[in-house]
C-alpha cells in the first residue's frame, strides 16, 4: 500500500520541486529587496529569513527520521528505511547550515561567533547525533537489515534524548551566569512575517523534494547493488552447475 502511495507522490515530485523553487526565489526577493530592515537589528535581520526556516526544517528532518524509524521497526519496509537514511542526510546538511547561518547572524548582532545558548548547544548536539547516525550507517553495510535496525534504534534513543539535553543545558546555563545577551527571537512585525512565511514554505517544500530525490537515489543504489550481486551469483553457479 505504502509503495502505491509513494508512487503517487513521486508523480508529483516535479511540482513540489517547482513550488520550492518559486517560493524560494520569491522569498529571497521579498527578504532581500522588498522588506524593510529591522528597527533594532538593521539589515542583518535578513539572515533570519534563511536561518529560521533552516532550523525548522532540520527539526522536521529529524522528526521524519524518528517516525520513519518506528515505522521501519514495525513494518520492516526497505523503502521506509531508505527514507530515514535520506532524511538523516538532509537533516545533517540543514542542521549544519542552520548552525553556520546562526553564527553569521550572531557576529554582527551580539559581536560573537558562538554563545553557549541552550538552543545553540542543542542544535550542535543534534548535529553530532546525526553525524553519528550517518557514520553508523556507513560503517555497517555488510547486512542491510541489521544496518537499518541499528540505525533506527539509534535514532529513537537520540530523539528521546534531545529534549532532555536541551532541558539540562538550559538549567546549566541559567545556573552559571545569567545570559548577558538575550538570544530570544526578535519580535516579528507583519512586514517581516510575509517573507519569513514564504521562505519557510519554500524550505519545507525543498526538503520534501530533496527527500524524494534522495530516497529514490538510495533505493536505486541498493537495487543496483542487488542486481550486480545476482549477476555474480549466476556466473558463479553456471561454473559449478549440478548435473542430475
Amino acid at each position: 500500500m505504502i509503495h502505491r502511495i509513494i508512487k503517487q507522490i513521486q508523480r508529483y515530485k516535479g511540482w513540489v520541486g517547482a513550488g520550492a523553487a518559486v517560493c524560494l526565489l520569491t522569498g529571497t526577493y521579498l527578504g532581500l529587496i522588498a522588506s524593510p530592515p529591522d528597527y533594532y537589528q538593521g539589515e542583518v535581520v535578513r539572515i533570519m529569513y534563511v536561518h529560521v526556516p533552516l532550523a525548522h526544517t532540520a527539526l522536521l528532518a529529524y522528526t521524519v527520521v524518528f517516525a520513519g524509524s518506528i515505522w521501519y521497526l514495525w513494518k520492516r519496509d526497505r523503502l521506509i528505511d531508505n527514507m530515514c537514511h535520506a532524511a538523516a542526510g538532509l537533516g545533517f546538511l540543514f542542521t549544519g547550515l542552520a548552525l553556520i547561518t546562526g553564527s553569521i547572524w550572531a557576529k554582527p548582532t551580539w559581536n560573537t561567533w558562538w554563545t553557549w545558548d541552550p538552543r545553540l548547544v542543542s542544535f550542535a548536539i543534534l548535529f553530532l547525533i546525526l553525524a553519528g547516525y550517518l557514520m553508523l550507517r556507513t560503517f555497517l553495510t555488510e547486512d542491510p537489515d541489521r544496518e537499518s535496525r541499528y540505525a533506527a534504534v539509534l535514532a529513537i534513543v537520540g530523539f528521546i534524548d534531545l529534549p532532555i539535553i536541551h532541558f539540562s543545558v538550559e538549567w546549566w546555563r541559567t545556573l552559571h551566569q545569567p545570559l548577558s545577551i538575550s538570544t530570544r527571537g526578535v519580535s516579528i512585525s507583519g512586514e517581516l512575517l510575509l517573507p519569513l512565511t514564504i521562505m519557510s514554505i519554500g524550505f519545507h517544500l525543498l526538503f520534501a523534494y530533496m527527500l524524494m530525490v534522495r530516497t529514490q537515489l538510495l533505493y536505486l543504489d541498493e537495487l543496483l547493488q542487488a542486481k550486480k550481486g545476482r549477476l555474480l551469483t549466476q556466473m558463479h553457479l553456471s561454473r559449478s552447475q549440478t548435473s542430475p
Binding site: I125, L128, I129, G132, V157, G158, D161, I164, I165, F167, S168, V169, W171, W172
Partner: peptide, 8 residues
C-alpha cells in the same frame, strides 16, 4: 552526545 545530561 547522548549522555551529556548525565555529565552536566
Amino acid at each position: 552526545p547522548m549522555v551529556i545530561p548525565v555529565m552536566i
